[in-house]
Write a protein that binds this DNA or RNA. Structure first.
Lengths: 350, 350
DNA sequence: GCCCGTCATGCATGCGTATTCATGTTTGCG
DNA sequence: CGCAAACATGAATACGCATGCATGACGGGC
């Protein structure tokens, strides 16, 4: 057995197999021309030595690391866990590695970017917070493509993939209106994030079109988390005693769930009988029996595919696609948190 | 602006700053001796060129990548999401990167290991499935330390960090008994995993000590997931119509939650009035209002620290610690899913 | 049977940085 | 003020692999 720390190189394998180091390289590259017989001899020698090619070294010459960076904020939102999972599966299946960064929600991703630049990653997937345009151009200048996931950054030429959040917000508003709601609350997420902004905007637009007055619409900051939404809900309706609206829109599912639990278990409010609720994302957790949350489904699969497509990892020579922002339509999923039949006339506010 | 793909090297910086490449290297290494003045000049030149040191290249000479591999199964269990988060935070704070692998639950990790060997990672954290002893020794021979998280592998000399699962299982049994339970069910996880085995063993041992008969104890395989546990619970008690026991032990919180929801919302069983439930892990989700799950807390923070300690990434020259298995005690967290006062005599079984 | 094309293989070099060794320079102390 | 020691710096080399180029072997077509 080799002593600790010893790692055999292609030279060791070459010596044992009686060939040159170049042949060893060719035996493992797969593409280069080499006789099947010598190839087998080399693989046999490699097996004996427990040889594993050093990707670090090969990256130095090929200028490809086969590493993709994934920057995540807010792992408290299961949506991003599923995103991580999907990307991980797809990339591993392609023989690529995932370098994961977590950044505090709300924090800049710039520092993370700086770190991964050092590792010469082949691409960056950003599913968190903000990114300065300076960082974007630094990456682009170095030939590293970036794709924003579930967000876009106005004025940036970073490409992005996202759900059509404004349209989704309208779908929710529509569903509430159809069920007879006339007064509303929204639990909002990161005020700097376009995702939350767009969902709110679409939602509000549709309501205003329908003649809902602004005074019948309140916004509650929910910090994009279960706990934040739960606390904000209690604070608003129990402590400050604002009247309950007919319907409450959680800008994402996890916040809607936090609100529902607080309403039901701390305040004795029935959902949907006393108050309708809807979320956004369609995380599997929202489908569970206690919630059966009405929501807008984000087509994760399609978004992930589209994101990888934009990175075009397979063809580094192709120029980086800049400024792409193709929103994908989300789909309304009616479940149990909106009363299906138009309900009886709801009590007047105040 | 540089054209796409251009990356300046230490030579470019050296030329601009009027020094040698060696000095540039020293300016960035932090430790080497260099005049503060020339250092500033170099940093200034580097800034102008958007120079970022190439970690890939430096790894080639230093034989350290500052990359740690994290292998995860079952991201559907929030426990491992929190594990990922903690490791990620700690390692990033140390200036290290996390290379994430996800493997299908139940699958071998061997292939993942093979991939990360190519990347010369400084250490491996395994929080998934099985690992062959062959892989362990390959890693160890190459000087790559491995630490198993929340599991151990009998006969392997890989070190591990885990909660004292058997003792935890006993704690749950004890709590059930104290509350007056005399018949029991367990929802078990991966039958090959020591984690599930140990929890079951401790739980059963304690019950048998108390004179509970084996016929008053059933085991239900729950696939380690919310959905698996939910389905298994329904299948067992609703379809096969086995009598409800007094108490049900979900081998982990997420399965306990799946069981609770099924009992309450598909079967009309009250928890804890009709049936007590406990879990294991103390995931934040189990603390939420609808569950308030009684459980055994795994000290994640301490386990993560211990795991990183075993890897001793700071001192690669220290020999790899083999075969360490220091179970850390878990703590019983009484919440609402076990009736606190000894309940009224429970109805007889059958 | 000869010539040229095809292919397997080896040699040599480059990728970007860290580090050793040698050299020149400054500092400290008597 | 002088000498040694500490220090700043540059030149050269190694890290492990991929690849362009050269060479030699082999085969096919006429």
């Amino acid at each position: 057995m080799a002593r600790q720390g010893s790692r055999s190189t292609s030279f060791d394998v070459a010596a044992l197999a009686g060939v040159s180091q170049a042949s060893v390289s060719r035996a493992f590259s797969g593409s280069a021309s080499i006789t099947e017989e010598t190839r087998q001899r080399i693989l046999e020698a490699a097996r004996k030595l427990n040889y594993v090619p050093n990707s670090i070294a090969s990256s130095l010459t090929t200028k490809r690391t086969n590493i993709v960076a994934l920057i995540l904020g807010n792992l408290g939102n299961p949506f991003y866990v599923h995103v991580l999972h999907r990307f991980s599966q797809k990339l591993q299946a392609q023989g690529r590695q995932v370098l994961t960064f977590t950044v505090d929600p709300g924090a800049e991703s710039d520092e993370a970017i700086l770190h991964l630049l050092k590792y010469q990653v082949d691409g960056v997937i950003l599913a968190a917070a903000q990114l300065s345009t300076r960082m974007t151009s630094i990456c682009h200048d170095r030939g590293i493509p970036i794709v924003l996931f579930n967000r876009y950054i106005p004025g940036s030429d970073a490409s992005g993939v996202r759900c059509d959040n404004a349209a989704g917000g309208r779908l929710i508003a529509e569903a509430f209106l159809r069920a007879g709601a006339r007064s509303f609350a929204m639990i909002t997420g990161d005020p700097k994030g376009t995702t939350s902004q767009d969902r709110v905007r679409g939602f509000v637009e549709r309501l205003l079109e329908e003649g809902i007055r602004r005074s019948d619409l309140i916004a509650i900051p929910g910090l994009s988390s279960y706990e934040g939404a739960a606390e904000a809900t209690y604070e608003t309706f129990a402590e400050r005693k604002l009247p309950l609206p007919d319907a409450l829109f959680g800008i994402n599912d996890i916040m809607a769930m936090g609100a529902i639990d607080t309403l039901r278990y701390r305040m004795g409010v029935r959902v949907p009988e006393d108050l309708m609720v809807a979320g956004f994302d369609d995380i599997p957790e929202g489908r569970r029996l206690p919630y059966q949350l009405t929501t807008v489904q984000q087509p994760i699969e399609a978004m992930v595919d589209e994101a990888l497509d934009i990175l075009h990892l397979d063809d580094p020579s192709r120029p980086i696609e800049r400024g792409i922002d193709r929103p994908i339509a989300g789909q309304l999923i009616m479940r149990a948190t909106i009363a299906q039949p138009p309900p009886r006339p709801r009590r007047a506010r105040r």
